[in-house]
Write a protein that binds this DNA or RNA. Sequence first.
DNA 1: GAAATTAAATTGGTCAACCAATTTTCTAAA
DNA 2: TTTAGAAAATTGGTTGACCAATTTAATTTC
Lengths: 246, 246
Amino acid sequence: MTSDPAKRRYQEIAELLARRIEEEGYRPGDKFPTERQISVELGISRSLVREAFIVLEIEGYLDVRKGSGSYVAAGEKISLHIPKADYGPFELLQARQLLESSIAGFAATTITKSDIIHLRETLDLERRAIENGEEDYTADRQFHRQIAEATQNSVLVDQVEDLWNKRENSSMWARLHDRIFDLSYRAKWLDDHAEILEALRHRNSDKARQAMWQHLENVRLTLLELSDVGDPDFDGYLYTPARAAP
Amino acid sequence: MTSDPAKRRYQEIAELLARRIEEEGYRPGDKFPTERQISVELGISRSLVREAFIVLEIEGYLDVRKGSGSYVAAGEKISLHIPKADYGPFELLQARQLLESSIAGFAATTITKSDIIHLRETLDLERRAIENGEEDYTADRQFHRQIAEATQNSVLVDQVEDLWNKRENSSMWARLHDRIFDLSYRAKWLDDHAEILEALRHRNSDKARQAMWQHLENVRLTLLELSDVGDPDFDGYLYTPARAAP
DNA sequence: GAAATTAAATTGGTCAACCAATTTTCTAAA
DNA sequence: TTTAGAAAATTGGTTGACCAATTTAATTTC
């Protein structure tokens, strides 16, 4: 998908050093070698090491202090690369159910004509992707994002995006990915989306909420079906506490 | 709370340039000024600009190409992870209202005897903190977190925690902080919490949802009241789209 | 001998110069 | 006129030197 022509030098060095921190028993607060030490060791200039240190600082690995040195960071920072919880697909869906159904209900009260038009365009993109057999689900994601955007609340948008990111980082979901698209339940989900859009168009808050809930419930049921393949790894995810629709 | 000793130079420059990209009508694929141009314009060395470019590249703003120049990145990358946006207090509260009321309703169906006991203990801590005039609101936060934990869904817990973290990073909220605790609306909120707990204890899903909604609505009203002080900075936050309770 | 002061060494911060890849311009051949 | 190739200009990549803040060691003072 992405070009990924050539990894930049500082990125290579940063990954090398990050691996060192993780695998070499560094504990928070420990002193890390200085920029000069690393540069001598790797036979490169200090500027390159410095750039790598910046990356590591941003990712929450290091805490650099002028005149003192660099130290392995203590607090859990905003590091996105490594320390990523591996959420299960069912708890993710459950969270989306609770959050996105509320958002859909709210969005029905704030949505504009323009939002409706954009949502319809996204729906067309979805339909075309399915007809062409593409595995691309960006339109699907976009649909849900646009609904959140209709609330005019950036926190909600980020919250929804965060759940999608968590899903893409979920190892279990990655294993399910192929099965889901092979069996092409997406046509059913497309109908769900159309129903949600219809409720939003009529500014029917209750119906929008329920339609979103049912949509994600359908996804959940599909997942349950696909999980019943004797794979012992799925055991921990099979059960999800039942709950009535709101 | 946080130390925040001194923002690093490259970080300042990166934020400046990021703001320029966002506010100056740059579109994906557009060519961005070269490192040299920026360095001349800002009167600093190119190394500093280069470090800022690295930050922007990591955050998904830029796509730098040797010999060619830097271009505004096309795909939405992982940018939202790092640059913690400065959310307004009302959109934060609105998000909490939607999410936490749903969580409370769900938690009512999954909560255990043990959870109730722990919540009651937390409530006592809150009461004691208020009686002693402490400004510490960790018990408050803990109460909301424990309700999320009662759902047994780690995604929901993280989601709630994330909203609290966003609030603590909110500059506008920081300015409101003192006023809120000076006027001690916390006693009222303590009653709200007690009511929520009562609904959870009776496993009354609807009532728990509504009680949580009303609680956050009360916080919102307090904020509105406190904001009416002629501070022009609040203008952008004064209006929040109305919405009926679910 | 202990504490305060000063000096030296260490470390990250900043800079200007040069290197290498790419793009653009110019030139000449078809 | 078009096109292929070479030269020039542009741009990011890399380096070593120097600056400034911090830490450590040495010195002075009581």
